[in-house]
Design a protein around this nucleic acid. Structure first.
Lengths: 207, 207
DNA sequence: GTCTATACCATGATAGAC
DNA sequence: GTCTATCATGGTATAGAC
Protein backbone atom coordinates (compact mmCIF):
# COMPACT_ATOMS: atom_id res chain seq x y z
CA UNK A 1 0.00 0.00 0.00
CA UNK A 2 1.29 3.44 -1.02
CA UNK A 3 0.72 6.40 1.26
CA UNK A 4 2.04 9.84 2.00
CA UNK A 5 3.82 10.60 5.21
CA UNK A 6 0.99 12.93 6.13
CA UNK A 7 -1.85 10.62 5.25
CA UNK A 8 -4.54 9.85 7.80
CA UNK A 9 -3.00 6.47 8.33
CA UNK A 10 0.17 8.05 9.56
CA UNK A 11 -1.78 10.16 11.99
CA UNK A 12 -3.64 7.10 13.16
CA UNK A 13 -0.36 5.38 13.69
CA UNK A 14 0.78 8.25 15.82
CA UNK A 15 -2.40 7.95 17.86
CA UNK A 16 -1.57 4.30 18.28
CA UNK A 17 1.86 5.16 19.57
CA UNK A 18 0.40 7.63 22.02
CA UNK A 19 -2.07 5.09 23.29
CA UNK A 20 0.57 2.42 23.47
CA UNK A 21 2.72 4.76 25.48
CA UNK A 22 -0.14 5.50 27.87
CA UNK A 23 -0.73 1.79 28.35
CA UNK A 24 2.93 1.13 28.95
CA UNK A 25 3.12 3.92 31.48
CA UNK A 26 0.05 2.63 33.32
CA UNK A 27 1.47 -0.87 33.32
CA UNK A 28 4.76 0.38 34.59
CA UNK A 29 3.11 2.03 37.56
CA UNK A 30 1.05 -1.03 38.38
CA UNK A 31 3.94 -3.41 37.97
CA UNK A 32 5.95 -1.29 40.34
CA UNK A 33 3.14 -1.08 42.84
CA UNK A 34 1.87 -4.64 42.86
CA UNK A 35 4.21 -6.83 40.90
CA UNK A 36 3.37 -8.95 37.91
CA UNK A 37 1.24 -11.62 39.53
CA UNK A 38 -1.03 -9.23 41.37
CA UNK A 39 -1.43 -6.82 38.50
CA UNK A 40 -4.64 -7.51 36.58
CA UNK A 41 -5.47 -6.52 33.07
CA UNK A 42 -8.63 -4.89 34.40
CA UNK A 43 -6.54 -2.50 36.42
CA UNK A 44 -4.26 -1.75 33.51
CA UNK A 45 -7.25 -0.96 31.33
CA UNK A 46 -8.80 1.23 34.01
CA UNK A 47 -5.56 3.08 34.65
CA UNK A 48 -5.07 3.63 30.93
CA UNK A 49 -8.68 4.71 30.53
CA UNK A 50 -9.73 2.06 28.02
CA UNK A 51 -11.70 -1.17 28.12
CA UNK A 52 -10.02 -4.43 28.85
CA UNK A 53 -10.78 -5.89 25.47
CA UNK A 54 -9.33 -2.82 23.80
CA UNK A 55 -6.20 -3.37 25.76
CA UNK A 56 -5.90 -6.78 24.20
CA UNK A 57 -6.03 -5.14 20.76
CA UNK A 58 -2.80 -3.36 21.65
CA UNK A 59 -1.04 -6.14 23.51
CA UNK A 60 -2.15 -9.65 22.89
CA UNK A 61 -1.28 -11.00 26.29
CA UNK A 62 -0.37 -9.96 29.79
CA UNK A 63 3.05 -11.45 29.36
CA UNK A 64 3.77 -9.58 26.14
CA UNK A 65 2.62 -6.37 27.79
CA UNK A 66 5.04 -6.93 30.63
CA UNK A 67 7.79 -7.74 28.18
CA UNK A 68 7.14 -4.48 26.33
CA UNK A 69 7.39 -2.56 29.58
CA UNK A 70 10.62 -4.24 30.53
CA UNK A 71 12.07 -3.61 27.10
CA UNK A 72 11.17 0.06 27.28
CA UNK A 73 12.74 0.24 30.70
CA UNK A 74 15.97 -1.25 29.44
CA UNK A 75 15.95 1.19 26.56
CA UNK A 76 15.66 4.02 29.03
CA UNK A 77 18.52 2.63 31.07
CA UNK A 78 20.72 2.34 27.99
CA UNK A 79 19.79 5.86 26.94
CA UNK A 80 20.61 7.15 30.40
CA UNK A 81 24.00 5.48 30.33
CA UNK A 82 24.70 6.79 26.84
CA UNK A 83 23.69 10.30 27.87
CA UNK A 84 26.20 10.61 30.69
CA UNK A 85 29.00 13.08 29.97
CA UNK A 86 32.07 11.38 28.49
CA UNK A 87 34.31 12.52 31.31
CA UNK A 88 32.26 10.54 33.82
CA UNK A 89 34.37 7.80 35.38
CA UNK A 90 33.35 4.16 35.20
CA UNK A 91 32.49 4.00 38.87
CA UNK A 92 30.54 7.21 38.66
CA UNK A 93 28.55 5.77 35.80
CA UNK A 94 27.73 2.65 37.78
CA UNK A 95 26.69 4.79 40.69
CA UNK A 96 24.65 7.10 38.50
CA UNK A 97 22.78 4.20 36.96
CA UNK A 98 21.89 2.77 40.35
CA UNK A 99 20.83 6.19 41.48
CA UNK A 100 18.72 6.65 38.37
CA UNK A 101 16.94 3.36 38.99
CA UNK A 102 16.33 4.14 42.66
CA UNK A 103 14.94 7.55 41.80
CA UNK A 104 12.66 5.92 39.28
CA UNK A 105 11.45 3.53 41.93
CA UNK A 106 10.90 6.29 44.44
CA UNK A 107 8.78 7.96 41.80
CA UNK A 108 6.78 4.79 41.42
CA UNK A 109 8.03 3.94 37.99
CA UNK A 110 10.33 0.98 38.27
CA UNK A 111 8.79 -2.40 37.69
CA UNK A 112 10.59 -4.87 39.89
CA UNK A 113 12.77 -7.26 38.04
CA UNK A 114 11.04 -10.35 36.76
CA UNK A 115 9.63 -11.67 40.00
CA UNK A 116 10.16 -15.36 39.68
CA UNK A 117 6.98 -16.11 37.86
CA UNK A 118 8.22 -18.96 35.64
CA UNK A 119 5.90 -18.32 32.72
CA UNK A 120 6.84 -14.65 32.62
CA UNK A 121 10.48 -15.56 32.90
CA UNK A 122 10.35 -17.82 29.88
CA UNK A 123 8.27 -15.35 27.91
CA UNK A 124 10.90 -12.73 28.53
CA UNK A 125 13.74 -14.99 27.53
CA UNK A 126 11.87 -15.93 24.38
CA UNK A 127 11.38 -12.26 23.54
CA UNK A 128 13.91 -11.16 20.97
CA UNK A 129 13.69 -7.44 21.71
CA UNK A 130 14.00 -7.91 25.44
CA UNK A 131 16.94 -10.28 25.29
CA UNK A 132 18.74 -8.00 22.87
CA UNK A 133 18.48 -5.10 25.34
CA UNK A 134 19.57 -7.26 28.23
CA UNK A 135 22.65 -8.40 26.37
CA UNK A 136 23.49 -4.89 25.33
CA UNK A 137 23.16 -3.59 28.88
CA UNK A 138 25.17 -6.50 30.24
CA UNK A 139 27.91 -5.70 27.77
CA UNK A 140 28.03 -2.05 28.76
CA UNK A 141 28.01 -2.91 32.42
CA UNK A 142 30.75 -5.50 32.10
CA UNK A 143 32.98 -2.89 30.47
CA UNK A 144 32.34 -0.36 33.20
CA UNK A 145 32.94 -2.88 35.95
CA UNK A 146 36.19 -4.08 34.48
CA UNK A 147 37.43 -0.55 34.00
CA UNK A 148 36.53 0.40 37.56
CA UNK A 149 38.18 -2.73 38.87
CA UNK A 150 41.34 -1.98 36.91
CA UNK A 151 41.34 1.46 38.49
CA UNK A 152 41.07 -0.11 41.91
CA UNK A 153 37.90 1.77 42.85
CA UNK A 154 35.84 -1.41 42.75
CA UNK A 155 36.93 -4.58 44.53
CA UNK A 156 39.15 -6.35 41.96
CA UNK A 157 38.89 -9.68 43.72
CA UNK A 158 35.20 -10.05 42.96
CA UNK A 159 34.15 -11.69 39.70
CA UNK A 160 32.67 -9.20 37.30
CA UNK A 161 29.32 -10.98 37.47
CA UNK A 162 29.11 -10.59 41.20
CA UNK A 163 29.45 -6.87 40.82
CA UNK A 164 26.97 -6.64 37.97
CA UNK A 165 24.32 -8.78 39.56
CA UNK A 166 24.72 -6.97 42.83
CA UNK A 167 24.09 -3.68 41.09
CA UNK A 168 21.00 -5.05 39.39
CA UNK A 169 19.81 -6.47 42.68
CA UNK A 170 20.25 -3.16 44.47
CA UNK A 171 17.86 -1.46 42.11
CA UNK A 172 15.08 -3.50 43.66
CA UNK A 173 16.40 -3.51 47.21
CA UNK A 174 13.46 -3.94 49.58
CA UNK A 175 15.33 -1.85 52.14
CA UNK A 176 14.07 1.11 50.15
CA UNK A 177 10.48 0.27 50.99
CA UNK A 178 11.27 -0.41 54.63
CA UNK A 179 13.04 2.91 54.99
CA UNK A 180 10.28 4.75 53.28
CA UNK A 181 7.73 3.16 55.59
CA UNK A 182 9.41 4.62 58.64
CA UNK A 183 8.56 8.02 57.26
CA UNK A 184 11.71 9.41 58.79
CA UNK A 185 13.66 10.15 55.66
CA UNK A 186 13.23 12.10 52.48
CA UNK A 187 13.41 10.27 49.19
CA UNK A 188 16.79 11.82 48.61
CA UNK A 189 18.12 10.53 51.89
CA UNK A 190 16.80 7.05 51.24
CA UNK A 191 18.45 6.91 47.84
CA UNK A 192 21.68 8.32 49.27
CA UNK A 193 21.81 5.66 51.94
CA UNK A 194 21.17 2.85 49.52
CA UNK A 195 23.82 3.93 47.06
CA UNK A 196 26.28 4.51 49.83
CA UNK A 197 25.69 1.11 51.40
CA UNK A 198 25.84 -0.62 48.02
CA UNK A 199 29.31 0.71 47.35
CA UNK A 200 30.82 1.08 50.80
CA UNK A 201 28.98 -1.75 52.55
CA UNK A 202 27.71 -1.81 56.11
CA UNK A 203 31.21 -1.55 57.40
CA UNK A 204 31.69 1.80 55.76
CA UNK A 205 34.90 3.02 54.30
CA UNK A 206 37.55 3.51 56.94
CA UNK A 207 38.84 6.94 56.09
CA UNK B 1 -11.71 -32.17 81.06
CA UNK B 2 -9.27 -34.12 83.19
CA UNK B 3 -6.66 -36.30 81.53
CA UNK B 4 -3.33 -37.92 82.18
CA UNK B 5 -0.20 -36.70 80.49
CA UNK B 6 0.05 -40.06 78.77
CA UNK B 7 -3.54 -40.27 77.65
CA UNK B 8 -4.39 -41.00 74.04
CA UNK B 9 -5.26 -37.39 73.59
CA UNK B 10 -1.74 -36.39 74.33
CA UNK B 11 -0.49 -38.83 71.73
CA UNK B 12 -2.99 -37.51 69.28
CA UNK B 13 -1.84 -34.03 70.01
CA UNK B 14 1.68 -35.09 69.23
CA UNK B 15 0.49 -36.51 65.93
CA UNK B 16 -1.07 -33.14 65.26
CA UNK B 17 2.21 -31.41 65.92
CA UNK B 18 4.02 -33.77 63.59
CA UNK B 19 1.52 -33.17 60.83
CA UNK B 20 1.52 -29.44 61.42
CA UNK B 21 5.27 -29.50 61.16
CA UNK B 22 5.14 -31.42 57.88
CA UNK B 23 2.68 -28.92 56.48
CA UNK B 24 4.78 -25.99 57.60
CA UNK B 25 7.84 -27.53 56.06
CA UNK B 26 6.08 -28.13 52.76
CA UNK B 27 4.73 -24.60 52.77
CA UNK B 28 8.16 -23.25 53.52
CA UNK B 29 9.62 -24.98 50.49
CA UNK B 30 6.85 -23.80 48.22
CA UNK B 31 6.93 -20.25 49.52
CA UNK B 32 10.65 -20.16 48.88
CA UNK B 33 10.27 -21.61 45.43
CA UNK B 34 7.26 -19.71 44.12
CA UNK B 35 6.39 -16.95 46.53
CA UNK B 36 3.08 -16.43 48.25
CA UNK B 37 0.92 -15.45 45.32
CA UNK B 38 1.90 -18.33 43.11
CA UNK B 39 1.77 -20.95 45.82
CA UNK B 40 -1.54 -22.81 45.80
CA UNK B 41 -3.16 -24.72 48.60
CA UNK B 42 -3.41 -27.70 46.25
CA UNK B 43 0.34 -27.79 45.97
CA UNK B 44 0.82 -27.47 49.69
CA UNK B 45 -1.54 -30.37 50.27
CA UNK B 46 0.18 -32.47 47.64
CA UNK B 47 3.63 -31.70 48.99
CA UNK B 48 2.51 -32.50 52.52
CA UNK B 49 0.85 -35.70 51.33
CA UNK B 50 -2.66 -34.86 52.46
CA UNK B 51 -5.86 -33.65 50.87
CA UNK B 52 -6.66 -30.03 50.47
CA UNK B 53 -9.63 -30.13 52.80
CA UNK B 54 -7.53 -31.75 55.50
CA UNK B 55 -5.10 -28.94 55.11
CA UNK B 56 -7.86 -26.51 55.90
CA UNK B 57 -8.55 -28.38 59.13
CA UNK B 58 -5.05 -27.57 60.25
CA UNK B 59 -4.82 -24.04 58.93
CA UNK B 60 -8.03 -22.25 58.23
CA UNK B 61 -6.69 -20.01 55.48
CA UNK B 62 -3.77 -19.53 53.17
CA UNK B 63 -2.85 -16.34 54.92
CA UNK B 64 -2.82 -17.92 58.36
CA UNK B 65 -0.70 -20.74 57.01
CA UNK B 66 1.82 -18.29 55.65
CA UNK B 67 1.79 -16.41 58.94
CA UNK B 68 2.54 -19.63 60.80
CA UNK B 69 5.47 -20.32 58.50
CA UNK B 70 6.87 -16.87 58.96
CA UNK B 71 6.48 -17.08 62.70
CA UNK B 72 8.32 -20.39 62.80
CA UNK B 73 11.07 -18.88 60.68
CA UNK B 74 11.49 -15.98 63.05
CA UNK B 75 11.60 -18.41 65.96
CA UNK B 76 14.39 -20.26 64.24
CA UNK B 77 16.25 -17.05 63.62
CA UNK B 78 15.92 -16.04 67.26
CA UNK B 79 17.03 -19.49 68.36
CA UNK B 80 20.03 -19.29 66.06
CA UNK B 81 21.02 -15.93 67.47
CA UNK B 82 20.55 -17.17 71.00
CA UNK B 83 22.64 -20.25 70.31
CA UNK B 84 25.75 -18.37 69.21
CA UNK B 85 28.63 -18.64 71.67
CA UNK B 86 28.73 -15.70 74.08
CA UNK B 87 32.18 -14.66 72.98
CA UNK B 88 30.92 -13.94 69.46
CA UNK B 89 31.25 -10.26 68.66
CA UNK B 90 28.27 -8.17 67.64
CA UNK B 91 29.46 -7.90 64.07
CA UNK B 92 30.16 -11.60 63.89
CA UNK B 93 26.65 -12.27 65.09
CA UNK B 94 25.19 -10.05 62.41
CA UNK B 95 27.29 -11.77 59.84
CA UNK B 96 26.42 -15.20 61.13
CA UNK B 97 22.71 -14.47 60.98
CA UNK B 98 22.93 -13.30 57.39
CA UNK B 99 24.98 -16.34 56.54
CA UNK B 100 22.45 -18.59 58.24
CA UNK B 101 19.62 -17.08 56.23
CA UNK B 102 21.51 -17.37 52.97
CA UNK B 103 22.38 -20.99 53.65
CA UNK B 104 18.73 -21.64 54.38
CA UNK B 105 17.81 -20.08 51.08
CA UNK B 106 20.41 -22.05 49.20
CA UNK B 107 18.88 -25.13 50.74
CA UNK B 108 15.49 -24.04 49.47
CA UNK B 109 14.05 -23.26 52.86
CA UNK B 110 13.74 -19.53 53.17
CA UNK B 111 10.41 -18.02 52.30
CA UNK B 112 11.08 -14.60 50.88
CA UNK B 113 9.95 -11.76 53.04
CA UNK B 114 6.32 -10.79 52.69
CA UNK B 115 6.24 -10.04 49.01
CA UNK B 116 4.08 -7.02 48.87
CA UNK B 117 0.78 -8.77 48.73
CA UNK B 118 -1.34 -6.26 50.64
CA UNK B 119 -3.77 -8.75 52.14
CA UNK B 120 -0.94 -10.96 53.37
CA UNK B 121 0.83 -7.95 54.73
CA UNK B 122 -2.14 -6.88 56.80
CA UNK B 123 -2.81 -10.43 57.94
CA UNK B 124 0.75 -10.64 59.19
CA UNK B 125 0.59 -7.35 61.00
CA UNK B 126 -2.67 -8.41 62.61
CA UNK B 127 -1.09 -11.66 63.78
CA UNK B 128 -0.10 -11.39 67.40
CA UNK B 129 2.47 -14.20 67.35
CA UNK B 130 4.17 -12.93 64.23
CA UNK B 131 4.41 -9.33 65.34
CA UNK B 132 5.75 -10.41 68.71
CA UNK B 133 8.61 -12.29 67.04
CA UNK B 134 9.34 -9.43 64.70
CA UNK B 135 9.60 -6.99 67.56
CA UNK B 136 11.80 -9.34 69.53
CA UNK B 137 14.14 -9.85 66.58
CA UNK B 138 14.22 -6.14 65.86
CA UNK B 139 15.18 -5.52 69.45
CA UNK B 140 18.03 -8.00 69.36
CA UNK B 141 19.27 -6.68 66.05
CA UNK B 142 19.16 -3.06 67.18
CA UNK B 143 21.36 -3.96 70.16
CA UNK B 144 23.86 -5.75 67.98
CA UNK B 145 24.00 -2.96 65.47
CA UNK B 146 24.53 -0.29 68.09
CA UNK B 147 27.26 -2.30 69.75
CA UNK B 148 29.03 -2.90 66.46
CA UNK B 149 28.73 0.76 65.57
CA UNK B 150 30.16 1.79 68.92
CA UNK B 151 33.08 -0.53 68.23
CA UNK B 152 33.61 1.16 64.88
CA UNK B 153 33.32 -2.07 62.88
CA UNK B 154 30.01 -0.97 61.37
CA UNK B 155 29.59 2.44 59.80
CA UNK B 156 28.59 4.69 62.72
CA UNK B 157 27.22 7.39 60.47
CA UNK B 158 24.36 5.23 59.25
CA UNK B 159 21.11 5.20 61.21
CA UNK B 160 20.57 1.91 63.00
CA UNK B 161 17.51 1.23 60.88
CA UNK B 162 19.43 1.51 57.67
CA UNK B 163 21.79 -1.19 58.88
CA UNK B 164 19.01 -3.45 60.12
CA UNK B 165 16.84 -3.17 57.07
CA UNK B 166 19.81 -3.68 54.81
CA UNK B 167 20.63 -6.89 56.61
CA UNK B 168 17.05 -8.10 56.29
CA UNK B 169 17.05 -7.16 52.63
CA UNK B 170 20.26 -9.04 51.96
CA UNK B 171 18.70 -12.28 53.12
CA UNK B 172 16.48 -12.14 50.06
CA UNK B 173 19.02 -10.65 47.67
CA UNK B 174 18.13 -11.73 44.13
CA UNK B 175 21.82 -11.66 43.27
CA UNK B 176 21.92 -15.07 44.90
CA UNK B 177 19.61 -16.50 42.28
CA UNK B 178 21.45 -14.82 39.44
CA UNK B 179 24.78 -16.16 40.61
CA UNK B 180 23.40 -19.61 41.09
CA UNK B 181 21.97 -19.57 37.58
CA UNK B 182 25.38 -19.02 36.07
CA UNK B 183 26.32 -22.41 37.47
CA UNK B 184 29.86 -21.21 37.97
CA UNK B 185 30.00 -21.15 41.73
CA UNK B 186 29.39 -23.50 44.59
CA UNK B 187 26.75 -22.61 47.12
CA UNK B 188 29.50 -21.79 49.57
CA UNK B 189 31.10 -19.36 47.17
CA UNK B 190 27.82 -17.66 46.43
CA UNK B 191 27.09 -17.17 50.11
CA UNK B 192 30.64 -15.96 50.73
CA UNK B 193 30.36 -13.36 48.01
CA UNK B 194 27.03 -12.08 49.23
CA UNK B 195 28.13 -11.72 52.83
CA UNK B 196 31.34 -10.09 51.78
CA UNK B 197 29.62 -7.58 49.52
CA UNK B 198 27.00 -6.82 52.14
CA UNK B 199 29.61 -5.78 54.66
CA UNK B 200 32.44 -4.47 52.52
CA UNK B 201 30.43 -3.15 49.60
CA UNK B 202 31.34 -3.22 45.95
CA UNK B 203 34.28 -0.99 46.61
CA UNK B 204 35.89 -3.56 48.85
CA UNK B 205 37.84 -2.75 51.92
CA UNK B 206 41.03 -0.89 51.14
CA UNK B 207 43.48 -2.84 53.23
C1' DG C 1 -13.03 -37.60 64.33
C1' DT C 2 -9.95 -37.30 60.61
C1' DC C 3 -9.20 -37.58 55.56
C1' DT C 4 -11.19 -37.88 50.48
C1' DA C 5 -13.91 -36.39 46.89
C1' DT C 6 -16.51 -33.06 45.12
C1' DA C 7 -19.25 -28.86 44.85
C1' DC C 8 -19.34 -23.74 44.94
C1' DC C 9 -17.97 -19.22 43.91
C1' DA C 10 -15.11 -15.28 42.76
C1' DT C 11 -11.58 -13.69 39.91
C1' DG C 12 -9.06 -12.90 35.96
C1' DA C 13 -7.29 -13.93 31.21
C1' DT C 14 -9.02 -14.36 26.58
C1' DA C 15 -12.27 -14.55 22.45
C1' DG C 16 -16.11 -13.06 19.68
C1' DA C 17 -20.14 -10.20 18.45
C1' DC C 18 -21.44 -5.32 17.73
C1' DG D 1 -12.78 0.88 19.88
C1' DT D 2 -16.73 -1.33 23.51
C1' DC D 3 -19.62 -4.80 25.59
C1' DT D 4 -20.63 -9.41 26.72
C1' DA D 5 -19.45 -14.38 26.94
C1' DT D 6 -16.22 -18.25 27.94
C1' DC D 7 -13.12 -20.91 30.40
C1' DA D 8 -9.65 -22.12 33.67
C1' DT D 9 -7.87 -21.50 38.15
C1' DG D 10 -7.77 -21.45 42.91
C1' DG D 11 -9.63 -20.47 47.63
C1' DT D 12 -13.14 -22.21 50.51
C1' DA D 13 -17.26 -25.15 52.27
C1' DT D 14 -19.68 -29.43 52.56
C1' DA D 15 -20.86 -34.56 52.42
C1' DG D 16 -19.74 -38.70 53.17
C1' DA D 17 -16.00 -42.86 53.79
C1' DC D 18 -12.75 -45.22 57.25
Amino acid sequence: MVMSFFSKLSVREQQQKVRDEAILEATSLLLARKGYDLMTMDEVAAEAGIAKASLYKHFTSKELLAAAVMTRLLDNALAFLGGLPPETSAREKMQALLRWALDLRLGGGLPLLPSMNPTLQSTLLANRAYVERILKLNGRMAELVKTAQAQGVIDPELPTEVIMFTLYARTCDPALDYLRMTGKYTNQQVADYLVRVAFAGLRGTPT
